[in-house]
Design a protein around this nucleic acid. Structure first.
Length: 210
DNA sequence: CAAACGATTTTCT
DNA sequence: GAAAATCGTTTGG
């Protein structure tokens, strides 16, 4: 079943901090699939439909940067109240974007792992250095951030604007179109490496839109 | 201060 | 499929 893109743009509700402050980060990671993330960088707007996420569940999650209450200059934003961005650099190259969730003091976050280019694809392609943009150029956490112009300098910024906004655009992703599995690159996390905290929209559905 | 290590991507065989 | 690229953050002395 293909997405009904004709409905996108008609129902546009901005997700508020209240939404992100809910305490079930795993549910939020799944619920964010199909939502739209807009960035406004240097007066330039780009939007992607969220296609893949991972949940990082606070101080008890061995895969989380905040495991065991680890509090550093980098991770401190995770402990703020939900509704802001946590962006960090990985492998010296990639800027990874997270939605900080839950209330202050509970360092939960949802990692953005993939988007479907939606608005201002021209600029996204330019940022990526690509001629013909397709989903394979935005289907990883580093690639998605690059397409949206996200860098670590925006860490701590609000998800209610002016740099970031998250929209409910009326897309309903049914359960049978969501693939669930273990998180990527967290082999060091022991038992927690096997937790089913990764969610993605079924690739066949996404491919229908290319 | 030095060293090791990544919530990855790309480019090789 | 394996390995390099590449540098800020973290950790240990």
């Amino acid at each position: 079943m293909a997405w009904d893109f004709s409905s996108i743009g008609k129902v546009q509700n901005v997700l508020t901090a209240t939404y992100f402050q809910r305490n079930d980060v795993v549910m939020l990671a799944r619920d964010l699939l199909g939502k739209a993330l807009t960035t406004n960088i240097n007066g330039q707007t780009t939007t992607g439909i969220i296609t893949e996420t991972e949940a990082y569940a606070g101080i008890s999650d061995r895969a989380s940067h905040a495991f065991n209450g680890r509090f550093t200059k980098r991770t401190s934003v995770m402990y703020q109240k939900g509704g802001i961005a946590y962006i960090f650099l990985i492998y010296g190259i990639h800027h990874l974007f997270n939605f900080v969730t839950n209330v202050a003091g509970k360092p939960d976050a949802v990692l953005l792992r993939g988007i479907l280019p939606f608005q201002n694809k021209t600029l996204m392609a330019k940022r990526l250095g690509i001629r013909n943009l397709s989903y394979q150029h935005t289907d990883g956490p580093g690639k998605a951030s690059k397409a949206l112009g996200i860098s670590t300098s925006l860490t701590g910024e609000s998800l209610e604007g002016p740099f970031f906004k998250v929209w409910d655009v009326g897309l309903q992703i049914s359960y049978d179109h969501i693939v669930t599995g273990p998180r990527v690159g967290v082999a060091y996390a022991g038992e927690d490496a096997f937790l089913p905290y990764r969610f993605k929209i079924s690739p066949t559905i996404v491919h229908d839109q290319l």
